[in-house]
Structure formats: C-alpha cells, structure tokens
Amino acid sequence: MLLLSRFIIKGHSMEPTLLNGAIVLCSSIPYFFVSPRVGDIVIVKDNETEKIIIKRVEKKEGERYFLIGDNIKDSLDSKKLGWFERKDIIGKVIF
C-alpha cells in the first residue's frame, strides 16, 4: 500500500522518459478504481531480488503484466524476468 511516495530513479532503463537520478511521485490510489493499463509507468516489486523497480506496462493478460523499460536497447525487464503479478505492482507514477 502506497498512498503517495517519492522515488529516486537509479539506472538507465527508463531513459529517455526518466533519467538516472530523476525523482517521481507514485501512488496506489489510481489502482483502487482501475487496474494498471498498458502505457502506465508503474513501481513494482521484483520478488527475485526483493528490489523495487520501475517499468512501463507493455501488455496485460488477466492479472499478469508484461513490463518493459523505455530504453529498449538496455533494460532488464519482463523480457528476462517474466510476467509480473498484479499484487506486485505497488503504484502508478503520477508525476
């Protein structure tokens, strides 16, 4: 549960949209009413590393989400990590 939180981005996989060091505002409130949509930038928990990561929703199948980085040349995402579950998505980047 993350009503409103600030995150600093570490890494380059969301470039050029979000640069390394950028600060974003994230909230779980939008997902109280609707499910994450294709195109949303989301904060998600990677259960393998226990780290909080940031990616964009590329595809959705039921409650499973395929998340990718905007930096298509260099991103560690669903292409390697696989699909993420809805319960792992913590919130939406709103600003």
Partner: peptide
C-alpha cells in the same frame, strides 16, 4: 507536503551492467 515525503529508490535496471 510532497517534499517531506520520504525518498525511496526505484531501480531502473539495465540489462547490461
């Protein structure tokens, strides 16, 4: 109020470290 929110880290991992 936004600025007093704690700052956490979100990793935008690259595939090629």
């Amino acid at each position: 109020f936004i600025k007093i929110l704690p700052l956490k880290t979100a990793y935008a991992h690259c595939d090629i470290p």
